[in-house]
Write a protein that binds this DNA or RNA. Structure first.
Length: 1395
RNA sequence: AGUCCCGUAGCUCAGCUGGUUAGAGCGCUACACUGAUAAUGUAGAGGUCCGCGGUUCAAGUCCGCGCGGGACUACCA
């Protein structure tokens, strides 16, 4: 009979490998989903990683968390679909590609076409998919990688477009002019991501100026009065004096206190009055100045001043002032410029409390100015367009021309100048500034010159260098500017209330992330800036007319709309005068200009159409459509003589990932999808109809259900391939022509075949999509081995996409075309019947018939059925089939998501925002945000420090189970984890070894006894105390673990399991029960022991399966394969243990705790007295505190006695022999005595035995607490026995144990006998005897030993399985061993196996 | 700068609604145990509970202000 598997040692990596193999073979993952069919579903969303970087150890952490809850829910009976995904767009991809190609952004469109660039990105982005897939598998992350969503695929983008079009229809998408970080040196706007790259913020010293703006009018009387007297100024501070010419407003805080000061200009010494915030007065004036005489010369140290008036900021609002540097006037609403407005961003932390406001160069400035109706400083350029005073190169426009100081055409930051330019400028300055600065020593920046000019003109109060942190462009290292740029925005702010309300329904782990970080973020949501000026990403689907006519706009929400709305495509032949191909933008400009010149645009257009230079979109072959640049930039609309060209922006990649609940299913375009308003998208309607047709009529429905995701992979857009196919189509070989005669025109079963069809990266001779069939005709060249290898690889690859390839030799096609056609028909009928066995059978005949001579099967069709186009096991069980549930027809919202806490304002936000706006629903109900994985010193892992941990090495060395267990149990998921490999070793040693040893112990003896759990369960009532105890604990454990997992607290679950296994199961239950397993007959007690341990082990396997999926499965199978108590072949398919409340016995658990304490105390006493545990002692005594205590203790008496090797336990009633100690019960006393506690505690501490006695017998005692009488009652104190005079005593808490340490001769003999047994057992083991072998034993006579053997003969024989035991005068056998029984006593022992 | 998390023994972490002597494991030292044995038990050494203030009879725990580490967001005169 097969027994429980006995392992040599514990090798976790090996076990993981074996289990992985088993999962693959048995398709356990698929089964774990299939077997939950019909059950409730648990929706999980996978946050897509980017496959263009290597995975790190932190991914193991994040994915463990995701995985374990999915597994847990599966065990609880939920069906958990989890579709993998890849994030493929975005800057990191672009940067990687640029680095590789050695180009920069400026080269795109010059050295490399956008098309080539994007192709490179597309290839680069999936570079590490293999590595990722490998990690996914090795770490045991169950996610379906066979059909992942990929954000660059057309279907994905189409869904994203649809979402955007929804927002557009809700008027939530708008184009706005906003201030964004911009690098003039690089000529590009920067995303906040780029601004947050390391090293972008640098401490720099800039010239700061406190400028004086001359007040011209005010509604506030005091100010108005002062104005009339002249020389009244607002003080405003800036660290960027170059923005002062663009000043159009001053901003004050409405509730900030301001003061009107009479003083002098520190530079010109002119008497003047200034206004600034009261709180900042001391920054500019020393208090002594208040008393100083009101006179001043520039060399004076002390600036005298007087406070004339004080008022609130709002009183200043509407005051007017003189333009500080009147180089230019705002184009529009100039009359509303130069006034005081209020803004809530104003603080009194630095500056003057009055903020210089240049709406063209500050985000806050722009917002506050817009709200107040103050115009930005925009001037007209040569084209008549409004532009700011600084151009895109960072240079002042010509308007800003100062006869003395220059400025026009100069860069506003000196860093933008090259050394040579700077030198040249310096030379010029020497001349032009001679009047003001005779010996100019170095180049003066724009900031410095403006400050200087203000100083000289008396318009500056203070000029100084100021050190601050300023962002720099990470690529050019030059400072960035905040610059107004056109952008598209989502009006997220209008959905704020909804988002906040919905967020309150989300269960965040930890809660603080949701209420705090995320909540606060929502309170202050800004509109979402979608625009990115890049190349590799989802294009913004908005088409617009240009400045040459009325504005028309089109937001495209589906590919089909191009056709419906009559889109056109600019072909390669459509060139401008210089011979460059037109794109939408340039054509729009070209035609617009013609139109302005009065030409008939329609005529030109008609010529373009007629000459096929512009085609209708509808005429494009489907495979050409790629929703990326540049393709989409060639798509245009033409209305009323105007071209609508696409806005060049791409969208923020975060929108891509936030769209995944929809886009991963190509929502709303597929069958079964419903739009939020309940209607059905026309595309989905069509799909429904097709689906219905197939569903009812034939099994084909399933085959064709690959959907468009699948199609994208199969039919790629590849110009070269398409072209080659076209050529081949035009020049068919004779064989191809032969076959085509029989396939064309739906001759076979009404199925449509294509010839020379580009598929994946190949061209198939004949292809039928409905049949998922490729027919190849192999000419002579295919006879070569090399070619056959290639063919095999090709078939395999296409097979993976669900396509079958039938190959026919050229000869066959020429000579037996009927056979070939017949064979294709066989395929068709097998396909229709979904009967691949028949196919295989016939296939073998067929192949036998034709194989060998001309053609060998290159696929292994002879061995296996060809790759079925149908999901294995039928589509209903395929993991990728979304359960068509919920209102939208897609799994929505998610029950659970998990990512790093860094995603709070990333993915978590975009998911939440999009679903709030589109559906008015949360996107996820529960979210775990996990912390970072740091190195063991708490430092961030980075390539630079070289402190990263290679996940593969870790998994390989320690196995995924230990790694996962360590990560989960070490720290709460949301705390940062200090990752230390030693910690994994510890987990391995402690938890897994304890569990493994417990199993090995079980297996060893169960096999000896042939236990297979065949006997009926022995009723709990008939099992001994310790069994009931461990089962009670097990039930409590299940409860605790269940609660922890339900609350998304895996750490608690793991720790509970670990404590149970190590402390309770292994170190208590198994230890105390050892003898039950190997002593005596196969009795009920023994069976009970096996059943109990079995139950513990199998349930621990189930409980720990979510965290340690491999080992748990191995343990489960090791146990279950023999007993077959569970029909499941994997722990992940079996269910979750039920809690049996009736088996939980708190009383019993308490009793056992007593036993443990008592044993521990007794062992401690032995140690103190230096008495070995093997030496039996006569008695221990335990004072009983209460009847209950005694009752409890009696029930576990046997356990204690055997554990500590003592003969009897005596219960001592209180008869005054104990020394007692007393301690106040603070919790009870606190409310009663309050601040007298200290006095009382002092008194109680001084109680002698008499007082304690009195309290115990009378129940109370009168005390005097600083004059207040107080009656102390028994419940106010805790009394415990601490000592028994004359005994060896130890105590812990309420329990005290006294040990009788006298060793009688009998005890001593017994002790020696035990020592002997121990030595003999060791010898047995050393000589390699089986645990069941009987022995013959000889012991040499020695006074004490002889006595011990004689009086304990039965015991010794029993323990050592000796069938004979003889005492010998002298043992001569040279295999006898000299043993020292105890100090000074030794003998010789000989044993041999009894026959 | 703002928001949030974290700070307890050499290391990794517990410490419930405040209760007086702050715990566990690892590591270290010593001893013991031994048919689970690279396990286990007992004992020992090891603490400014990040600091300072406050509330309270009582603070590791609650509050305030700092410091250090981290994350995100923002960059503002």
């Amino acid at each position: 009979m097969k027994g429980f598997k006995e392992h040599d040692g514990l090798n976790l990596p090996n076990i993981a490998e074996q289990v992985l193999e088993k999962w693959k073979n048995e398709k356990t993952f698929e089964a774990s989903i299939a077997t939950r069919e019909g059950g409730p579903s648990f929706v999980f969303y996978e946050g897509p990683p980017s496959a263009n970087g290597m995975p790190g150890i932190h991914h193991v952490m994040g994915r463990t968390i995701k995985d374990l809850f999915c597994r847990y829910k599966t065990q609880r009976g939920f069906q958990v679909n989890r579709k993998a995904g890849w994030d493929t767009h975005g800057l990191p991809v672009e940067l990687g590609v640029e680095k590789e190609l050695g180009i920069t952004k400026e080269d795109i469109g010059k050295k490399i076409t956008i098309e080539e660039y994007n192709k490179a990105c597309r290839e680069a982005v999936m570079r590490y998919t293999d590595v990722w897939n490998d990690l996914t598998e090795k770490m045991g992350y169950w996610v379906d990688m066979s059909d992942p969503y990929v954000t660059y695929e057309n279907n994905y983008i189409e869904s994203v477009w649809w979402l955007l079009s929804q927002l557009y229809e809700k008027n939530m998408l708008y184009k706005g002019y906003t201030i964004q970080p911009y690098s003039p040196a690089a000529g590009t706007g920067l995303s906040s991501h780029e601004l947050n790259l390391p090293g972008t913020y640098k401490d720099v010293k800039d010239t700061s100026a406190t400028a004086l703006f001359k007040v011209t009018s005010s509604e506030l009387q005091v100010v108005s009065d002062a104005t009339e007297k002249g020389n009244l100024f607002f003080m405003a501070w800036t660290t960027t004096p170059w923005t002062l010419p663009s000043n159009t407003a001053l901003t004050v805080g409405a509730n900030i206190d301001y003061v009107l000061i009479d003083t002098f200009n520190p530079y010109t010494a002119e008497n003047q009055k200034v206004i600034l915030a009261k709180a900042l007065l001391t920054k500019y004036f020393k208090t002594d100045g208040l008393e100083a005489e009101m006179s001043y010369t520039p060399s004076d140290k002390m600036l005298p001043y007087r406070v004339l008036a004080s008022f609130k900021g709002f009183e200043l609002v509407g005051s007017r002032y003189e333009q500080l540097l009147p180089y230019a006037q705002p184009m529009r609403d100039a009359d509303k410029a130069f006034q005081v407005i209020a803004g809530d961003f104003v603080t009194t932390e630095d500056g003057t409390g009055i903020v210089h406001t240049a709406p063209t160069f500050g985000a806050d400035d722009m917002q506050v100015a817009k709200a107040a109706g103050v115009p930005p400083m925009l001037v007209e350029n040569e084209n008549g367009d409004p532009v700011p005073l600084v151009d895109l190169q960072g240079r002042f426009v010509m308007n800003v021309n100062d006869p003395v100081w220059g400025l026009a055409g100069e860069p506003v930051k000196a860093e933008y100048l090259s050394d040579a330019e700077r030198e040249a400028a310096f030379e010029k300055q020497k001349v032009s500034l001679k009047e003001h600065i005779p010996n100019l020593s170095n180049y003066l920046s724009v900031d410095e010159r403006i400050a200087l000019k203000l100083k000289l003109e008396g318009k500056a109060f203070k000029v100084e260098k100021y050190q601050h942190n300023y962002p720099h462009c990470w690529r050019t290292d030059k400072p960035i500017l905040y610059y107004p740029l056109d952008s598209w925005f989502i009006k997220a702010s209008s959905a704020r209330d909804k988002m906040i309300a919905l967020n309150n329904t989300i269960n965040w782990k930890p809660e603080s992330t949701g209420t705090g970080r995320f909540g606060n973020w929502l309170e202050n949501v800004n509109d979402w800036n979608l625009s990115r000026s890049r190349y590799w990403g989802t294009p913004l689907p908005i088409w617009r007319t240009g400045p040459y006519g009325p504005l028309m706009e089109e937001c495209v929400g589906a590919i089909a709309e191009f056709t419906e709305k009559n889109a056109y495509y600019i072909s390669e032949e459509c060139l401008d005068e210089k011979g460059n191909r037109f794109d939408g933008q340039s054509l729009r400009k070209y035609l617009g200009e013609k139109r302005m010149m009065g030409e008939n645009v329609n005529t030109i257009w008609n010529d373009l159409i007629r000459s096929r230079k512009i085609k209708t979109f509808a005429s494009l072959p489907e495979e050409m459509i790629d929703l990326h640049r540049p393709m989409v930039d060639y798509v245009i609309f033409f209305r009323n003589g105007l071209v609508l060209a696409r806005e060049l922006d791409l969208i923020d990649v975060w929108f891509d990932s936030g769209a995944m609940p929809y886009a991963q299913w190509h929502y709303p375009f597929e069958a079964g999808h419903k739009m939020p308003d309940g209607s059905v998208h026309p595309a989905a309607q069509a799909a429904n109809e097709t689906k219905g047709m197939f569903d009812s009529a034939s099994p084909l429905g399933r085959g064709s259900r690959g959907g468009l995701d699948w199609k994208e992979k199969v039919i790629p857009y590849d110009k070269e391939l398409t072209e080659r196919a076209r050529q081949m189509r035009n020049n068919p070989t004779e064989g191809e022509r032969n076959v085509w005669q029989h396939l064309k025109g739906k001759q076979i079963g009404g199925y449509d075949f294509d010839r020379q069809k580009p598929l994946n990266s190949f061209i198939a001779d004949f292809y039928c999509q409905e049949l998922s069939l490729i027919v190849e005709i192999d000419g002579k060249s295919h006879l070569s081995e090399a070619q056959q290898k290639k063919d095999a690889a090709r078939d395999k690859k296409l097979g993976a996409l669900g396509l079958n390839t039938l190959r026919f030799s050229g000869d066959l096609v020429h000579n037996k075309i009927d056979e070939v056609v017949g064979w294709i028909q066989t395929y068709v009928s097998c396909f229709e019947k979904d009967d691949w066995n028949a196919f295989e059978k016939d296939g073998i005949n067929f192949l036998n018939k034709y194989a060998g001579k001309n053609w060998k099967p290159v696929s292994d069709a002879g061995k296996n059925p060809p790759p079925s186009p149908l999901p294995r096991g039928g589509s209903s069980t395929h993991p990728l089939t979304p359960s068509q549930e919920g209102e939208l027809g897609i799994p929505f919202p998610a029950d659970f998501i998990a990512e790093g806490v860094d995603q709070t304002r990333g993915w978590f936000y975009t998911l939440h925002a999009i679903s709030s706006m589109i559906k008015g629903s949360v996107a996820f109900k529960n979210v775990v945000s996990n912390g970072l994985v740091l190195d063991k010193n708490g430092l961030k892992m980075s390539k630079r420090l070289g402190n990263g941990i290679d996940p593969f090495e870790t998994l390989g060395k320690f196995g995924p189970d230990a790694t996962r267990w360590y990560m989960i149990t070490n720290a709460m998921p949301w705390d940062n984890l200090k990752f230390d490999l030693d910690g994994i070793i510890e987990v391995q040693r402690k938890y897994f070894r304890a569990l493994h040893n417990s199993y090995s112990f079980f297996a060893l003896y169960a096999n000896v006894d042939k236990f297979t759990h065949a006997e009926a369960e022995i009723p709990l009532a008939n099992r001994p105390e310790i069994d009931r105890w461990v089962i009670s604990r097990l039930n409590s454990l299940v409860k605790e673990v269940e609660e922890a997992f339900d609350n998304y607290e895996p750490t608690r679950a793991g720790r509970a399991i670990q404590d149970f296994v190590v402390d309770e199961l292994s170190n208590w239950y198994v230890r105390l029960c050892r003898r039950r397993f190997w002593k005596g007959d196969y009795s009920d007690d023994k069976i009970a022991a096996y059943q109990t341990l079995y139950r513990c082990l199998i349930n621990v396997a189930k409980l720990s399966a979510p965290i340690a999926p491999f080992y748990s499965d191995s343990l489960f199978c090791d146990l279950n394969n023999i007993t077959r108590k569970d029909s499941a072949n994997s722990v992940h398919i079996s269910g979750w243990p039920a809690i049996n409340e009736s088996e939980i016995d708190n009383d019993l658990e308490q009793r056992m705790a007593l036993a443990q304490t008592a044993s521990s105390l007794a062992l401690s006493l032995r140690k103190k007295e230096n008495i070995r545990v093997r030496q039996p002692l006569q008695k221990i005594m335990i004072p009983v505190i209460s009847a209950e205590f005694e009752k409890h203790l009696k029930q576990v008496e046997d356990l204690i006695l055997s554990e500590i090797n003592v003969k009897e336990l005596e219960y001592i009633k209180d008869d005054g022999v104990f020394v007692k100690s007393i301690k106040p019960n603070f919790k009870a006393l606190g409310p009663k005595v309050g601040k007298n506690m200290k006095v009382l505690a002092g008194k109680v501490a001084q109680f002698g035995q008499a007082e304690i006695q009195q309290l115990e017998t009378e129940g109370s005692i009168q005390l005097d607490l600083d004059g207040e009488p107080f009656e102390l009652i028994k419940d106010d104190v805790e009394i415990s026995t601490k000592d028994i005079p004359g005994w060896s005593v130890a105590s812990e808490g309420a329990m005290t144990v006294a040990l009788d340490i006298t060793i009688s001769d009998v005890l001593r003999s017994e002790g020696i006998a035990r020592e002997l047994v121990n030595r003999i057992q060791n010898m047995r083991k050393e000589s390699g005897l089986e645990v069941t072998d009987k022995i013959i034993l000889m012991v040499e006579k020695q006074a004490e030993v002889t006595r011990a053997v004689e009086s304990n003969k039965n015991y010794i024989c029993d323990e050592t399985l000796a069938s004979e035991l003889s005492l010998e005068e002298a043992i001569t056998n040279d295999k006898a061993i000299n043993v020292e029984v105890e100090d000074g006593i030794s003998t010789r022992i000989f044993l041999q196996k009894a026959e």
